[in-house]
């Protein structure tokens, strides 16, 4: 059984580190990072079959952060998971470094499977990796986290069609459905509803969960792991800026950088030592 309390504690620590790093380095997309922290925590500390000592092992599970602007969250998760020392993040945003606003290529940072940042690329790449597993008779699974705004991209739906026709059951998409995109409500920009029904209509299993509830997230991943003939889409209902009262569901935090005082307030709310 997963230690839910321990996972939740990790998620709180990660949120505090992400907020602190954003403030220190001036890195934006804080709201988008905070909405996917619980998904990343569940994956990296409970679901993914990975070995930080053999990060290129051919049979490892693959994870792609297709919403590449969530990289500040992923960088903290990879460090906490042990892919590289947490101290490396002290130089976040420094000229000549690797930690910026989007994931670099796999050759430049351990734990990264694909460089993303332009939306709509991660899922097709992940689909290629899943098909490669089939061709090479390997049993790894591929996970890709997308944002709801990213579902504007046609390439997402092109990939959804091919994955269904090829019955790629080892492919799992998680939509970080925080209901916002850069400049407005995602439903108002391009009508997404009903999102789960769209994935079902495209031939996928679709599972709706509270994307901040570890039990529900792990339950959905367990259903995916049981396998059947379809790819799986987990529609994770999330809150942008989750975890800090004055950031939650406020789209200003797509680009705003927290002040030193706001970092302290956030840590107090998260119950993390200031």
């Amino acid at each position: 059984m997963a230690d839910i309390a321990a996972l939740e504690a990790r998620a709180r620590t990660l949120r505090a580190r992400i907020i602190e790093t954003s403030s220190r380095s001036g890195t934006p997309h804080l709201g988008s990072c905070l909405s996917c922290v619980d998904i990343l925590t569940a994956l990296y500390f409970e679901v993914l079959r990975i070995d930080v000592n053999a990060p290129r092992s051919p049979d490892r599970d693959r994870f792609i952060l297709s919403k590449g602007h969530g990289a500040p969250a992923l960088f903290q998760v990879l460090a906490m998971r042990g892919f590289y020392p947490e101290a490396m993040l002290d130089n976040y945003g420094a000229d000549g470094g690797v930690f910026a606003e989007h994931p670099p290529t796999p050759d430049h940072l351990a734990g990264i499977e694909a460089a993303t940042g332009s939306l709509g690329h991660g899922l097709p790449i992940g689909l290629g990796m899943a098909l490669a597993a089939r061709i090479q008779r390997q049993s790894y699974k591929v996970f890709a986290v997308l944002s709801d705004g990213e579902c504007n991209e046609g390439s997402v739906w092109e990939a959804a069609l091919l994955a269904a026709s090829q019955k790629v059951s080892d492919l799992c998409v998680v939509i970080d459905f925080n209901k916002w995109q850069a400049t407005g409500r995602s439903e108002e920009v391009l009508a997404l509803a009903p999102l789960a029904e769209k994935w079902r209509a495209f031939g996928w299993n679709a599972i709706e969960v509270d994307g901040h509830n570890m039990n529900e997230l792990l339950g959905a991943f367990a259903i995916f792991a049981q396998g059947n003939e379809r790819p799986t889409a987990i529609i994770a209902h999330t809150v942008k800026g989750k975890g800090v009262s004055f950031m939650e569901d406020d789209n200003n935090w797509h680009y705003r950088i927290p002040t030193a005082e706001e970092v302290i307030k956030s840590k107090i709310e998260l119950g993390v030592p200031v």
Binding site: P124, I125, I135, A159, L161
Partner: peptide
């Protein structure tokens, strides 16, 4: 198993190819 008709969806086809190449194909 090594032939894929990716349909009339070239953006996805190119991404799929890159994913395969990243996996050693």
């Amino acid at each position: 198993r090594r032939f894929y008709n990716c349909g009339v969806a070239e953006a996805n086809m190119m991404g799929v190819a890159a994913g395969m190449a990243l996996s050693g194909l």
